[in-house]
Structures are given as structure tokens and as C-alpha cells.
Design a protein around this nucleic acid. Sequence first.
DNA 1: GTGAAAGCGCTAACAA
DNA 2: TTGTTAGCGCTTTCAC
Lengths: 351, 351
Amino acid sequence: MVRRRQAVTIKHVAADAGVSLQTVSRVINKEPNVRPQMQERVQASIDKLGYVPSRAAQRMSGSRSYLILALNDRERTIADWRARQGSDWVDQMLLGGMLKCAEYGYRMMFELVDTHNDHVERELSAAITALQPDGVILTPPHSDNPLIVNLLDKHNIPFARIGSAGWAVGIPLTMGDEQAGKDATQHLIDLGHEKVAFISGPDEYILSSWRRAGWQCAMGNAGLAIDGLIANGDFSFESGRIAAEQLLGKTDRPTAILASNDQMAMACLEVAREKGLVVPDDLSVVSFDNTPIVALTDPPLTAVDQPIAETTSRAVELIIAAKNGNRTPDGPIIVPAGFVERGSTAAPPRG
Amino acid sequence: MVRRRQAVTIKHVAADAGVSLQTVSRVINKEPNVRPQMQERVQASIDKLGYVPSRAAQRMSGSRSYLILALNDRERTIADWRARQGSDWVDQMLLGGMLKCAEYGYRMMFELVDTHNDHVERELSAAITALQPDGVILTPPHSDNPLIVNLLDKHNIPFARIGSAGWAVGIPLTMGDEQAGKDATQHLIDLGHEKVAFISGPDEYILSSWRRAGWQCAMGNAGLAIDGLIANGDFSFESGRIAAEQLLGKTDRPTAILASNDQMAMACLEVAREKGLVVPDDLSVVSFDNTPIVALTDPPLTAVDQPIAETTSRAVELIIAAKNGNRTPDGPIIVPAGFVERGSTAAPPRG
DNA sequence: GTGAAAGCGCTAACAA
DNA sequence: TTGTTAGCGCTTTCAC
């Protein structure tokens, strides 16, 4: 195996520009105390020689790694990948995260971590020690895992917590789930629906409760009862089926269902079809997330759009800002959800 | 900002075990010349102290970076992400690549590179210098970009070329496109079709010609004419529309179409519908790639399945093997495509 | 504002 | 088989 040495190092640049290593280092890192003239001369040498600093060496000498680690739940992520149902959560994170990282000379790396596992800490510690990332992005359900959050806090690594709002550590970001749930429900109420049912997500995800709260709030504001209009799911298609059957099996069935994610909404579509209900004539359905698949169902689903790319992009910005010593905003950052109206919603049936 | 030092270094382990740094290093790297007893003692200290080597330091001292870089075409990848049409190319690469990397203590990192750009070389050189990856995975159309291939060869970095077969550099891997094209065509012929048309991909992708060759071969073997049965596309939906209109506009129209990717096949579905043709009764359609979306079209598309995860996984294995000094296999590696029969194929209309 | 020296954590090369 | 020494490329002190 060939022992590979850096072709052009800071030394070559220093020699070429006739300055000390230190000055070159200062120019690379855009430090203040360098005369413009000096900086130009060094920059010229850098460009001429095509010098690019070694991240490993920078990291070694106690500076940054220019690396941000994005953590996702191993089990769920792999299951999504294998299922090949078009969930593009990871892609949207990459889209928002990688591009924003690139703007700052950073890079993003993905890492899968088991939540349901007593060695989360060991797993994550190892990754941090090996990689020494400058920041970490947590996604649900990790964002609210106290083991993970405390570990990161202890290590003093800036970290974002997507889909999380509480605690005084890290940088929480949400899509305003409660408001989104409220708006979606209100949209159905505005169409004339009075019996708007809700299928919740698992309690493990804190955003499940927010979405429910939004629905509940809109219903309450409109003076509508919610008795018997809630069913519990766990984000899986199958749980959505069970919930939908429970909801639509009653004589006094709801005229609209707001499901906490796409899979469960698709299950509603299937159950409705089996029961001879036409969507949206007999039943309106709205989902959360808006993964690519919901534009292709029959009918296409009206959905709350989760702005993953934008949220990840903000997370990267805030992590780098924190790394640069800027204060982290006080409250949680809200990157508002969107709402895409498609064919699964209409006025309720008359009578 | 806190200056972060490694909590547990090789020194601590050495002290704890009462051995030299070098011995610890040998244990970490599973080198042979260490007495079992010694190795156990050191390993015990490692476990006790929770030591994990710093990748940066390992890289700095001339060893590996334990990093494999996966290169994708910037323009196309970002377009796919933004389009949100459920293309899971990146996800499948991650699935196959990350998991295999993890087995060997490696990590995979994604990087986007412009092909149509005179500074590909500068761009890629910078990434290589900054990151010092132990290997690189090239995807189409990069796999056949001479600038990229030569650069990697010159740097002496093991690299895989997915979707490529030629040249004596790097590790070429294909899904056996020609065979897949042949099989798909044969499948249609077996159903009774005689006029099987083909929509090609852009010439920029070498696999376009392989897929075409497979179709041509099957048609030839069956003694069927191909005049007027080929149309050129560029993988875009719109180009697929144009090709389909050209093909289906004739009086003597084909009874089946094999499209070189999913988007163009979907365009065929749309054009057929506009012309009042029922798929699969009046027209059979088969696509290449089998992205998640094609299971949801109306009717669902019969498709050649591109084994991206498996191919990426093999690529990682071979790169690491090469890094370990093993000889690279001679011919191109073939990870055979699959074939998924769905509702878009049937016997041709009687007539 | 600029430079010189020390050291980050690890491994290659050499010595014992 | 094990230990010692000398860096890798860079940034952090700390002088000047």
C-alpha cells in the first residue's frame, strides 16, 4: 500500500509566499490580524499551488473538524429504506443539510443510532470520539432521548433537536405541529365538517401530542365535540387500518379524518374503499408529512407538508453559529409547516 | 469556545495496561505480532477505559481515514431531491453502502460533483485532499468521466465505478444491463408481442447503449424486425412523452414498449391514456430502475429492478479489499438486475 | 502584525 | 515480540 502524503501543505504555501506557517494559517482561517497586502500575497500562493487544508490535521491541532453529524433512528430508517415506499426523509435532510453545510465549508455525515438500546450512549460516544464532529443534528425520537441529549450537552457539542421544543439544552426546532394540526382541522371545519376524527401517532414521539393538541384546539374553538373521534396509531400502515376501522365502523361515523402521518392516512383510504365510502364525497382525509407517495394515491391526499429540508438547513446554520460563539435563540425555532390541498378533501356529504 | 481534547487516548490505555503505545496501536489494528496474553491485557484496558481511536489522528499518522466517499452527479441528484418524486437512488446507496461500511469500521460520506464543469478536477481534488478518503464510489455518469477516473487513478485511491464496464482502472460494477434488457424484451416476446419498441436513455450514460443492445439482441434472436421501433429519450418524463408519441402515433404502432427508465415509462402510460389505449390490454409497458413510484402508477409498472443497495455494498467490499492489498477481480462485477412483474404487461391485443 | 516553538493522537520505521 | 523515535499537517500558545 502506498503511503500517501499531502501534495501541497501549509509549508509549501508559506515557502512560496515567503511568510511563516502561522501567517498562512491565519489567512486560511480568515483571522483578523493580517495586513491586506500580506493576505493577498498568501492567497495568491494558495490559489497558485491549489492548496487545500487537511481536515484531519486541522482537527488534530485542536481546531474544528468541519463535520456535522446527522443522527437518525436506525431501525426506522433502515425499515423505510427497505420498504421502498418513497419516504424521502433522509433525502430532504441531505438536501437541506448538505447544501447549507457546503456554504460554510462544512460536511454532513449520516449516522444511525438505536434508540431502544441500553448502549445508545456507548454507540454515540464512540462516534463522537472517532469523528469529533463540530455539531450534531438529532431527529425524532432521538431529539427527546435524555441519554443522548445529556451526553451531547456534557461533551459541549452544539446540537439541534428537530421535532422537539422543551428543555434548556441544544437547539430545538419544530414545524409548529400544533398550529399545523389546528390549521388542518380548521380547513376541514371550514369545508363544513363537524365530525373531524383524529388518528394519533405513538407517544414516543412528542410531536404526536402536539398534533393532537392542535386538532383538539380547533375543534374546541369551533364548539365541536370530540368524543369518540380519536383513535391511536403508531405511524404504521397497519395501525392506521385498525384506527380507521374503529372510527368508520360506528353508525355515527366521522365525515373527515386527520391522520398523524401519511401511512396511516393511506390506510384510511384503503379502509374507506373497503367500506364502500367514496373519498372525498363521503369522507375527507388529511395527512401529516407529505412524503412523495401521497401525491400518487387515489385520490391524492391533501397533506400538511413537513419542511424537512428547510428545517435541517436552519439547524446547520444555528449549529455553526453556536460554534462561532453566537448565542442560541431562546425559544424553539419554528419552521412553519406547509399545507397542500389535493383531492382527498371536500365538503361533507349532505344530510 | 472550549478546547476539546480526547478524553481517553492511546497513552492512557498504554499506561493502564503497562505497555508501550505501539503495542496498543498493534492491538487496535489487529496486527499479528502480539502475544495473545498481551493482546488480551490491552483489550481489557481498552474496554475498561472505553477507548476509541481518533480517526483524525490515525489519518494524520499516515494510516487510513476509514472513509469512503460516494460521488453523485450534483445537478441530477438535487433535481431529484427537489422533485420529490420518490426516487430512492441515494437511499439505496446509503442502505447498501453505510451498512457494509459499518461492518468494517468504515464510514461513508456523500459528495455532489458537477460533471458538466471544467473544474470537476479541482472540485474533486479539493474533496480528496481535505478528506483523504480510503476509497471512492463513482456513479453514472461520473463512472465514465475520464477526468475523474484518471484523477483517482493518479491519486492511487481504490475506486468503484458503478454502471461501468470498460477500462483497466478502478473496479467496474454493473447490473448486467444488456442481459436485463434482453430478458425484459424476451419476457414481452414470450407474451406474444412482436412489435416491441424501445425508448433509449441519453448517450452520456454508457448503460443506455447496453440496454438498447439487449433489446436489439432479443429481437434479433426472435427474428423480429426493429425498424421504426426505437426512439431516443434522455431519462426525463418529457423526453419520454415525445418518444411515446412518436412511437404510438404511427398506424402500425408497437404493442409493447420497453423504456430505459421509470420516468419515461410513466410518460408512456400518460400518452397511452391520452390516445385511448388501455394498458396492458392494448399496450404493454416495461421500465428500467423500479423506483418506488412505479408500484403506484395506474396500472403498476412491470420493471427491471436495479439492485443499487447490493451493488453499492459490493463496491464497498471490493474497495476495502483493494485497500487491504487484495487483487481486484479482472472483469467487471455483475450484480444481476431483478425483474418485477406488475400490471402493465400482458399478451398483445388479438388482431 | 508576524514568527518560532510546542504539541494534538496516532503509526511507520527502526532498534532491541 | 516489544519498545523507542520521529514525524504527519496544522493551530495554539507565547514571543517579538
